[in-house]
């Protein structure tokens, strides 16, 4: 297991009234993504627990790409990963953020 943390800035804060959202399941080759409101001075914090060690740079690249598309802030994202590919990671994040932000984004 490896624990990784990332932060992204420059997005638009999402109203704290939004309910937490869970997307995906923690099955083999899959991941679960939990999105919650958090007072982070407009930033996004991402915490990843992954079964696959040594993929920090790839996570950084995938997440950077995602948050260039989703200009959000004041959210905490927690990820449990069981070896998902970058494409699956991006898909789950898109699903979770779409459901969380809805019309706000």
């Amino acid at each position: 297991m490896e624990r990784l943390e990332f932060e992204f800035a420059g997005g638009k804060p999402v109203a704290a009234r939004n309910k937490p959202v869970l997307a995906g399941v923690l099955g083999s080759g899959n991941l679960e993504v939990l999105v919650e409101p958090a007072d982070l001075k407009g930033r996004v914090r991402v915490e990843v627990e992954t079964a696959a060690r040594g993929f920090g740079p790839i996570w950084q690249a995938v997440l950077t790409d995602v948050f260039e598309r989703w200009k959000l802030g004041n959210i905490r994202i927690s990820i449990n990963d069981a070896g998902a590919t970058p494409a699956v990671v991006a898909l789950r994040l898109d699903q979770a953020l779409q459901e969380y932000a809805g019309g706000d984004a």
């Binding site: 869970l22 923690l26 627990e49 927690s78 449990n80 069981a82």
Partner: peptide
């Protein structure tokens, strides 16, 4: 045991 643990 070093296993992934789901939020629920």
């Amino acid at each position: 045991l070093g296993q992934p643990a789901a939020f629920d």
